[in-house]
Amino acid sequence: MSWTYPGIGHNFPDVASRSNTVTAPRPPRAAAARPGSVYRSSVGKKAVMAVTGAILVLYLVAHMVGNLKVFLGRADFDHYAHWLRTIGEPALPHRVFLTIVEVVLTVAVILHMWSAVSLARRARRARPVRYAVRPAAREHRYATHVMRYGGVVILLFVIWHLLDLTFGAVNPRGGGAEPYDKVVADFAPSHWYVTAFYVIAVIMVGLHLRHGIWSAFQTLGLGRRRRQRGLRLFAGTVAALLVIGFVSVPVMVTIGVVS
C-alpha cells in the first residue's frame, strides 16, 4: 500500500512491504509497579535530588552564617569552631552531633550525584543521534550545562576544600593549626590564586542553586503558574546571599581586612 496525494506526489513509505524490513520489535512495556518503584523512576530520581539538594542548601546556609564569625575576630571564630564539636554535650558525647551532620551530608551528596549521573546517562541514551544545528538558547539551556558540568566542578572544589580547611592536607599551616590561622594563611595576599579559585567555585555553586532551588520546588510538585515569579526570586535571592556570604571571607582576607 502506498498513498499518493494527487498533484503533490508525496509517497508515504510503506513499512510492511519494504524488502529489508524485519519483524517489528515488541514495543516496550513498563514493569508492574512495585512498592518503592516510583523512586527509581526518572521522576522519583529527581525527587531524591530535590530532597538531598534541600538538605545541602540548609547546610550551606548554616555554614555561610558560621563563616561570617571570622569578622568578629580570632577568639570568636575559634570558639565557634570548637563549639561545633561540643553541641549537645553532655547528652551527646564529644563530636557526635558533628559526625551525624557529616554522615547525613555524605549520604545526601552520594544520593544527589547517583541520581544526577543516572539521569544524565539516561538522557544520553535517549538521544543517540544529535542535531546538526543547535540554536541559541531558547529558554534555560544554561541550566543543563551549569547543573551537569558545573556539578562536576563543584565536586572537585568540595574535595579540595575538605583537604584544605577540614583535613589541612593542602593548607599552608597543616591540619593541626587553629581554624582562624588556617583561613588567614589560606587566603593570604600571596595566595591570591587560592582566593580566585574559591570565588569562581562559589559562583558556580550560586549558579547551580539559582536553577536547583527553583527546580526542586517544581520536582516536589510545589510550583504553580502564579508562584513561578516568586519561586525564581526566592531561588535567586538565596543563591546570591550564599555567594556574597561565602565570597566575603576569602576576599576580605586577601585584601587584608581580616589578618
Partner: peptide
C-alpha cells in the same frame, strides 16, 4: 504512575525542568 513507568520504559530521558519544551 503507569504513564510515567511507560514513559521511562520507552527510553525517553528524564525531565530536568529546563523549560525547552514549553
Amino acid at each position: 504512575t503507569a504513564m510515567v513507568a511507560q514513559m521511562d520504559a520507552e527510553g525517553f530521558g528524564g525531565c530536568t525542568n529546563t523549560g525547552e519544551c514549553t
